[in-house]
Amino acid sequence: MQGYFNQIFAIVWKDFLTERKTRELFSSMFVFAVLVIIIFIFSVDLSITRANEVGPGVMWVAIFFSGAIGLNRSFMLEKENGCMQGLLLTPADRTAIYFGKLISNLGFLTLMEAFILPVFMVFFNIDILPHLFPLLLVIFLGTLGFCAIGTLLASLAANLKTRDIMLPILLYPLMVPIAIASVRMTGEILAGEPLSEMLNWMGLVVCFDFIFIGAAVMTIDHILEE
């Protein structure tokens, strides 16, 4: 068991080291997310609609769009110079590779969210500080679900010729439940509702997370098989 965690940690550490040297992924994800928010602000007239109602949707769209870039990138790096081959040749378990990638994707996306939340707060004039804890919980659960299914599909799409297009096409319809639940919960939290009012949504997201991590663990062997 200790060895298994070491394998996962090694993959996560490798990804963070690469990112620290190149600094490609984080900057592109963050700038892209800010751009998505700005485009939405231009296309929705905030003087007519209430920021509280549009805001959560815009924030999650920015997270999902830039998240897809990050997912694509994480496996594209492995494809270059045959790194994936090397990774598969190591005695690491296939599920350890999945969890390693999942954790590093989750880490990058969470880091990006930490920077995008203040931007969101400023641009939409929404005070999120009183609701910070439930908001962070909802964002974490939603991001986990997104990364769970996203890492599985990205590992699959990486081997396709048209990976840039195929990943969003496969990913977005499948994460509709996460999108609806996260936007709904974020909206309700910003409106001041307590977490206990949205237990059904919470349950749905937790189910989503578990089902797709489970499905990934069971099927990843068949994808990472060369």
Partner: peptide
């Protein structure tokens, strides 16, 4: 096959959401 499985597993979640 993986997408076929994952897609069908998603149906109940989509339904409830």
């Amino acid at each position: 096959a993986v997408v076929g499985i994952v897609g069908f597993l998603d149906i109940p979640l989509i339904h409830f959401s």
